[in-house]
């Protein structure tokens, strides 16, 4: 992947190993990406692809037994690989914040909305309680919550799922972070609410010029929200690039396969057979070499067991990992 000018987050060769009974689970293997201010990167993948672990690795929230290695893991000039627990605490909730999937479980039921909103601000900034509450009301209004001042005294269970997710977003924005990581922020919500929340996230992110990583399995969400897309499969980024390029010219067999799997209103013929990706995600325990997708790939050849080159489409920012020059075996033969 090409260098982004003045990235706020820069990741090179990030590798996550989890010791399990009978070997090591190579959950994430050598992923690279850069993210600039005001940019949205969507990491898309199926369950077990390692996308959530990647976000936790950046936030320094991995379980202690998971081994994190990288050539570079830099956030606005701070080397996160060398940052100790205290340094990480001063960053989290302050300069980088996270929004989780389940607003029900990520808000503490024992505290009021106001307490939880102001907590990070009081912890990281030298502000008084009054100022913190004013800021909380301002942000609740910004995320579209009516009667914001009266909400501060309410408890999470008194709010609907959509409102709770808005509170989570307000909470993530309290300290004006420079990086937001949203892990499946709308998966637990209804479609109508999903659209509202995504719109809110995108508007706020543009307005405040924040860098955002959005993790999802929903290709529709990715297409509508992302500036840059990273398709993750079995711990590797198999295709990365600007959203227009990845969806306009999907190149890696996995990306193409995924896009064939979903019915697209107006494009897929109603009732027609959908594309499928047969087989299952391979085990990542033990020796993992070659292309992880080869067991399910229709373009697979013997070379897929070896080293897989990183290739670029005509647009330099659009990259993919495949033995085939165009992601297709057939095109090569005819060429």
């Amino acid at each position: 992947m090409t260098e982004t000018r003045d990235p706020i987050l820069s990741v090179r060769n990030l590798t996550l190993d989890i010791p399990v009974g009978g070997g090591t689970l190579h959950a994430v293997r050598g992923i690279d990406f850069d993210l600039a201010r005001g940019e949205t990167l969507c990491i898309v993948g199926e369950s077990g692809s390692g996308k959530s672990l990647t976000s936790l690795a950046i936030m320094g929230l991995l379980a202690p037994r998971i081994e994190r290695r990288a050539d570079r893991l830099e956030f606005d000039g701070v080397d996160l690989l060398k940052a100790g627990p205290r340094k990480m605490r001063s960053l989290r909730g302050n300069r980088m914040s996270m929004i989780f999937q389940e607003p029900m479980t990520s808000l503490n039921p024992a505290y009021t909305i106001g307490d939880q909103l102001t907590e990070a601000l009081l912890l990281h900034r030298n502000v008084g309680k009054k100022a913190a509450r004013d800021r909380a009301v301002e942000l609740l209004e910004k995320v579209g919550i009516t009667a914001a001042a009266s909400r501060l005294g309410q408890f999470p269970h008194q709010l609907s799922g959509g409102l709770r997710q808005r509170v989570m977003i307000a909470m993530a924005l309290m300290c004006e972070p420079e990086l937001i990581i949203a892990d499946e922020p709308t998966t637990a919500l209804d479609v109508t609410i999903q659209a509202q929340i995504l719109r809110l996230l995108v508007d706020l992110q543009r307005e405040m010029n924040v860098a955002m990583i959005l993790i999802t399995h929903d290709l529709g969400v990715v297409a509508r929200v992302a500036d840059k897309v990273a398709v993750m499969y079995a711990g590797e980024l198999v295709e990365t690039g600007p959203a227009g390029a990845v969806f306009g010219q999907p190149t890696h067999p996995y990306t193409r396969g995924l896009l064939r799997c979903i019915p697209v209103p107006g494009k897929t013929e109603r009732g027609a057979e959908l594309g499928t990706i047969p087989g299952i995600v391979p085990s990542l325990v033990g020796d993992v070499s070659g292309c992880p997708f080869r067991t399910r790939c229709e373009e697979a050849v013997a070379a897929c067991r070896g080293a897989i080159p990183l290739r670029h489409r005509s647009d330099d920012a659009h990259a993919f990992r495949c033995v085939h020059e165009t992601g297709m075996a057939t095109a090569e033969v005819s060429a």
């Binding site: 499928t276 047969p278 087989g279 299952i280 399910r296």
Partner: peptide, 12 residues
């Protein structure tokens, strides 16, 4: 339907 060798794999 599809008789893919990996689909038939029973794990564990």
């Amino acid at each position: 339907t599809t008789t893919d060798p990996l689909l038939e794999e029973i794990q564990g």
